[in-house]
């Protein structure tokens, strides 16, 4: 069953079609919520809300855009609203000597372990540093950056999800990269001292 057929059936309150839709998109929705909020439990709640919304509002879906774009849009909006409502602090970028101040939330999205214990620790530390730095970006830059680098979406898709122009997406990602370059550069310089 293709997406258009699937959503039509969901609009008719077909439970089987809905379950199929959830199984096809659960990973996508859950992971985008996780990457934007940084917390597994919250991400799961938000992802469930996204699918609940889809079930209730399936009739309003316009097949002009892709189903995944619609799901991304709902997931992004819910996650950002959650962050705003719960005043998820605008994290300050981690310092050069960053080791143990990685929040437990970030552990949720850390990398799989590699074989050497020493390398694994360094690698884990570095990934955690990167995650924290990305999460410390201002909201608009962070969202565009995560959708581009981590969700691997095109500028056009991001513009459609965020309901903004292509040039705005470009500028947000450009500014995010500039900020990250400064922070990474500082870390590299501090480490080599």
């Amino acid at each position: 069953m293709n997406d258009e057929e699937l959503i039509k059936r969901v609009a008719q309150k077909d439970r089987r079609a809905f379950e199929e839709l959830v199984n096809s998109y659960r990973r996508l929705v859950f992971n985008v919520c996780l990457r934007l909020t940084g917390d597994r439990e919250t991400a799961e709640d938000l992802a469930q809300e996204v699918f609940f919304h889809v079930y209730i509002k399936a009739k309003t879906f316009r097949s002009k855009s892709k189903l995944s774009t619609w799901l991304y849009r709902i997931a992004v909006n819910r996650s950002l609203n959650y962050n705003r409502k719960n005043k998820v602090p605008h994290r300050s970028p981690p310092s050069g000597s960053f080791t143990e101040n990685v929040s437990s939330k970030l552990e949720e999205i850390s990398s799989p372990p590699s074989y050497s214990p020493e390398k694994s620790l360094e690698n884990k530390e570095e990934k955690a540093f990167i995650r924290q730095t990305v999460l410390s970006l201002p909201e608009k830059q962070r969202t565009a950056f995560i959708l581009y680098y981590w969700e691997e979406l095109s500028y056009k898709e991001i513009a459609e999800i965020l309901k903004t122009s292509l040039s705005s997406v470009e500028s947000r990602i450009h500014r995010a990269k500039k900020t990250l370059r400064e922070i990474f550069l500082e870390r590299v310089v501090n480490k080599s001292k």
Partner: peptide
């Protein structure tokens, strides 16, 4: 060299699975 190594770590984090109770929660 160091910057490129750090930048390459920006790759997407490993995909996670929601809990097995995920669908039941929505239902």
């Amino acid at each position: 060299k160091h910057f490129s190594r750090l930048w390459s770590e920006l790759e997407p984090p490993r995909e996670r699975e929601p809990s097995s109770d995920f669908l039941n929660g929505i239902i």
